[in-house]
C-alpha cells in the first residue's frame, strides 16, 4: 500500500506533464493494471474429468462428458459508486480440454475496487453476424455454425445410457441470437464489499469461479436425456440456456 502511494506520487508529475489539464484524482483513475479469472470446471461439486468419469443429472441419469467449451465475453466491472468499465474486446473461449484456457488474463483494467462483475455467456449479437474473426472467435475453434451464421455459445458433448441417439450420444450445442430462440444470457454477480476485486498497480488479483457443467440440465427445467439428447439452436437450446443462465457460474473467492 505504502509502496504504491510512493509510486503514484512519482508517477503523478510525469502524467501531469504529458496532460496538463488533468487533476490528481483522475490521474489515479488513469492507472491501469491486470487481473485474472480462473474457471474451475466441475460437475455437481466433483472435478470435471473428460471421457472417463460418470456423473448424474438431476433426473438421476448417468452421463459422461467428452467436450465442454463455452464463451465468456463482454466482461463488465462495476464499482460501488455505480461507475462501470466494459473491458474492450473481451472474448474468451474456455475449453475443458485445454487447461491454459481456463485461466484468463485481463489487461489494462483501470485500477480500483470493483464490487460487481458481469459478462455474456456466449457472444453478443453483432459478432455473430460479423465478418471473419480471429482469436477466441476464429471459426477454427469449432464453435461457429457455417450453415446458420453464429457462434455456439456453450458446447457439451458426451454420452448417456439413457440417450436414444445413435451411440447413446449427447450433443448440446447452444447458440442462436434471434427471437424466439435467442440464447444470449448475461451472468452477473455481486462481489462482497468487504473483499472487493482490488485492481492495483502493485497487485494483480485472481477471481475464482466454479463452473458447474451439470447446470445445463437443471434449474428451470430438469432435462431427461431420454427425451432431450441433441440440440443445435432452436427452442430446446433455449431450455438449456435458461437452465445455465444462473447455475453455470458461481464466484467462489478472490485472491487479492
Amino acid at each position: 500500500m505504502k509502496l504504491s502511494q510512493y509510486f503514484l506520487a512519482l508517477l503523478c508529475p510525469i502524467i501531469l506533464l504529458s496532460s496538463c489539464k488533468k487533476n490528481t484524482d483522475e490521474v489515479v483513475a488513469d492507472t491501469k493494471s491486470t487481473f485474472s479469472i480462473e474457471f474451475e470446471n466441475q460437475v455437481n461439486g466433483s472435478p470435471l474429468v473428460l471421457n472417463t468419469t460418470t456423473y448424474k443429472n438431476a433426473k438421476g441419469e448417468d452421463f459422461k462428458i467428452n467436450v465442454f467449451k463455452y464463451y465468456v465475453s463482454n466482461i463488465k466491472l462495476s464499482k460501488a459508486d455505480g461507475t462501470t468499465y466494459l473491458i474492450p474486446e473481451s472474448y474468451f473461449l474456455i475449453d475443458a480440454s485445454k487447461s491454459e484456457s481456463t485461466n484468463i488474463t485481463l489487461k489494462d483494467v483501470p485500477t480500483g475496487d470493483y464490487t460487481k462483475i458481469e459478462y455474456t455467456i456466449g457472444v453478443d449479437y453483432a459478432r455473430n453476424f460479423a465478418g471473419a474473426q480471429t482469436g477466441a472467435l476464429d471459426p477454427i475453434n469449432g464453435m461457429f455454425w457455417t450453415w446458420n451464421s453464429g457462434y455456439i455459445f456453450v458446447k457439451l458433448e458426451g454420452t448417456s445410457p439413457q440417450s436414444i441417439a445413435a451411440g447413446n450420444t449427447l450433443t448440446f450445442h447452444i447458440g442462436g441470437v434471434t427471437d424466439p430462440n435467442n440464447t444470449i444470457r448475461t451472468f452477473a454477480t455481486e462481489i462482497n464489499a468487504a473483499n472487493p476485486l482490488r485492481v492495483r498497480t502493485d497487485s494483480k488479483p485472481n477471481m475464482h469461479f466454479i463452473v458447474n457443467a451439470a447446470a445445463l440440465f437443471t434449474g428451470k427445467t430438469d432435462v431427461s436425456f431420454a427425451t432431450l439428447n441433441i440440440t443445435m439452436g432452436g427452442a430446446n437450446s433455449v431450455i438449456v440456456a435458461n437452465n445455465y443462465a444462473n447455475g453455470l457460474f458461481r464466484l467462489d473467492h478472490i485472491h487479492n
Binding site: 453476424f129 465478418g131 450453415w147 446458420n148 451464421s149
Partner: peptide
C-alpha cells in the same frame, strides 16, 4: 438466408 456475412459464406463449402 442462414449465412449472414459474405466473408463467412465459404466456410460451409469448405467444411461440408
Amino acid at each position: 438466408g442462414g449465412v449472414k456475412n459474405i466473408e463467412t459464406s465459404p466456410l460451409n463449402a469448405i467444411t461440408d
